[in-house]
Design a binder for these strands. Structure first.
Length: 590
RNA sequence: GAUCCCGUAGCUCAACUGGAUAGAGCACCCGCCUUCUAAGCGGGUGGUUGCAGGUUCAAGUCCUGCCGGGAUCGCCA
């Protein structure tokens, strides 16, 4: 990390040096925002642990640290509290200086990583022939937030949607189309082409055929064998199947791209499992030659169990007994592809938590095979989206809620809310629709991302698209009020000036702004977007309180007016930055 | 059966990896628009953190055992 430092880091340096002087690791000096704003701005709890190590009285040690802190020009008051808490209150000058720094910094006080890495983020992972539904929201929204965050922190990110386009479901689908339209040339092995350019199936057809085929394959052993065979033939290049499969992919992609535009999500690569296919044969041969892959019950497997394992660790199936490549094999092939192309130092897989075992297996196999070390591969699991019964969300009629319908519904509610509030009456219909959509997307993304990534959550439609309280629209509202303020200020010729922190609300706002860097670091290190959501909300809240308590344009004192205006503008910049990292776009008015 | 995750206010969720008086939002009650957008602000009610032990200056957080819910456990992805 490089300069400038946030207030906690500046204080930590002072306290850390004092601890070091006592022969304790400087890490003991870590300062953080106080839990007790009534007592302090920042606190340090290191004295207690240090006292234990040194066998000394914690209050005695804390007193020594306090003396050092008091000598700092940043500190106006510092004292020992309770068993050895160190409390610090900052000088107005220190707060003002930090506020100025944030106000003038395009990154709003956020630092950047020292050594950028090449990072691949694999998310989305939608399946061909399946329309996006509510269950696909998390990977998309979390992955997108992470790619924005990692880029902002300075890493070289490549995002890849990694479509599910290569497994058994493709064979199932081919056979299902064959049942319905047996006369198509795709099924005629003697047909020499060319195949029709027009797809024989629409997305609606696929949406109908897919569950149908899947159900048959599940219940009917003979049909399943047929599906396996078709899958194997597709994978080994049967022209008719390839041509038909290409139609499935194309038809699906049109719909997926539409959702991406609607959600404001972008991928660098639209690769799929099938793109790993060219890398697999050589990989398999190599692994066989090195005896890493072994033949077992007709399948080529890689054993990944370790003696230290507490749980059962099944081997991965590199090539199944039909000669087809499953998702184990294609995931390894994908690693080879990325290694040869991008050569990432870190790969993040944003995939359902239920696939944790799968990724552990693949990562171990990759490590054993010398493709990429386990340490460079990370599965970022997320919880499932459940209904009120605690089971994966279903609509009242038992079906899945399509993402497109869900977004449309959110748009409608947002539009209705705008009318109700009589806002935006003076803008064009097109702008109104644009605002409503931004509000809807903000509501959806914030609802999802503010949950801890790893836990399941209960999906409540009304709560998801509610616009009051701790919601995406609340954040937009705060930003929009500042934008409105900026327009008026412009018209009145108000200019920003030196920042002062007189009122409690002003102090609180500066402290909130200062916390951005720490929130970013937390969200980045832990790959947890909810920490960013939390920060954005806290900031918006601090601003709303400030906005109510501190008049700006009507303030008669010119210095106060200029200071508050500066604070407002600094807040807007940081709020928009933070929202941008969550994937939320701010309208000009609402 | 084995392994892992979860259990916090009526509801939905936080809690900076062991710190002070466990915080938000919704719902409910009381105030605030002749000052910059009331999708807002201020205040209030609401907790034995599933249960029982243990570790220590300090436990929602760590260890053990229960209870309840969920997920996963070789040729589907």
């Amino acid at each position: 990390m490089t300069k400038p430092q946030d207030l906690a880091d500046q204080l930590s340096d002072v306290a850390g040096a004092a601890f070091a002087a006592l022969g304790v690791d400087a890490a003991a000096g870590a300062m953080r925002r106080s839990d007790r704003p009534d007592l302090a701005d920042f606190q340090c709890n290191g004295a207690m642990a240090a006292a234990k190590k040194l066998g000394k009285n914690p209050r005695e040690i804390a007193t020594a640290i306090v003396d050092a802190l008091k000598a700092s020009p940043l500190v106006t008051a510092s004292e020992v509290a309770g068993p050895g808490f160190i409390n610090v209150r900052l000088t107005p000058a220190a707060l003002a200086a930090r506020a100025e720094q944030i106000a003038s910094d395009p990154r709003s006080g956020a630092r950047i990583v020292e050594t950028p890495r090449r990072v691949v983020i694999d998310f989305g992972g939608w399946n061909v022939a399946k329309e996006m539904h509510i269950g696909h929201l998390r990977s998309t929204v979390i992955g997108d937030s992470l790619q924005r965050l990692f880029r902002f922190m300075g890493d070289a990110v490549t995002s890849d949607v990694h479509l599910g386009d290569w497994g058994l479901q493709m064979g199932q689908l081919i056979n299902e189309v064959k049942l319905e339209q047996p006369g198509l040339p795709y099924f005629d092995a003697s047909f020499t082409g060319p195949y029709p350019e027009q797809s024989p199936v629409s997305m609606d057809d696929l949406g109908r055929l897919y569950p149908q085929a899947s159900a048959k394959s599940k219940s009917d052993e003979a049909r399943r064998d047929e599906d396996r065979k078709a899958t194997q033939e597709l994978q080994s290049g049967r022209p008719g199947y390839r041509a038909l499969w290409q139609h499935f992919c194309n038809v699906t992609r049109v719909g997926l791209e539409r959702e991406c535009i609607s959600l404001g999500v972008r991928f660098d690569l639209w690769k799929g499992e099938s793109d790993a296919e060219p890398f697999v044969p050589a990989l398999v041969e190599d692994l066989k030659a090195r005896s890493i892959a072994e033949l077992d019950a007709g399948a080529w497997i890689i054993r990944v169990a370790r003696e230290t394992d507490k749980k059962e660790m099944p081997p991965i199936i590199l090539v199944n007994r039909d000669g087809a490549i499953g998702y184990h094999g294609s995931d390894l092939g994908t690693i080879v592809d990325r290694k040869q192309g991008i050569d990432p130092q870190l790969t993040l897989y944003v995939v359902d938590q239920r696939q944790a075992l799968h990724f552990e297996q693949v990562f171990r196999a990759s490590d054993r095979a010398g493709l990429m070390p386990e340490s460079a591969l990370e599965h970022l699991g997320f919880g499932t989206v459940n209904g009120p019964d605690g089971k994966p969300y279903k609509t009242r009629d038992g079906g899945t809620l399509k993402l497109q319908a869900f977004i449309a519904q959110a748009d409608e509610v947002a539009t209705a809310r705008m009318k109700e509030a009589e806002l935006g009456a003076d803008v064009s219909a097109a702008e109104q629709a644009d605002i409503a959509h931004k509000v809807a997307v903000a509501a959806i993304k914030f609802s999802d991302l503010s949950n801890v990534r790893t836990t399941n959550y209960i999906f409540d439609l009304d709560r998801f698209i509610s616009f009051e309280g701790r919601t995406g629209p609340y954040l937009l509202y705060a930003a929009v009020r500042i934008k409105s303020l900026a327009r008026r200020a412009e018209a009145e010729g108000v200019k920003p000036g030196p920042i002062m922190t007189e009122l409690d609300a002003e102090r609180a706002l500066v402290l909130a702004l200062d916390a951005f860097n720490d929130a970013l670091r937390g969200a980045y290190d832990k790959r947890m977007p909810h920490i960013l959501c939390d920060h954005a909300y806290t900031l918006a809240q601090a601003f709303s309180a400030f906005y109510a308590a501190a008049p700006i344009l009507v303030e008669t004192n010119a210095e106060k007016k200029a200071s508050r205006f500066s604070l407002a503008m600094a807040t807007l910049k940081q709020l928009e930055l933070a929202l941008g990292l969550i994937g939320i776009d701010t309208p000009e008015r609402m």
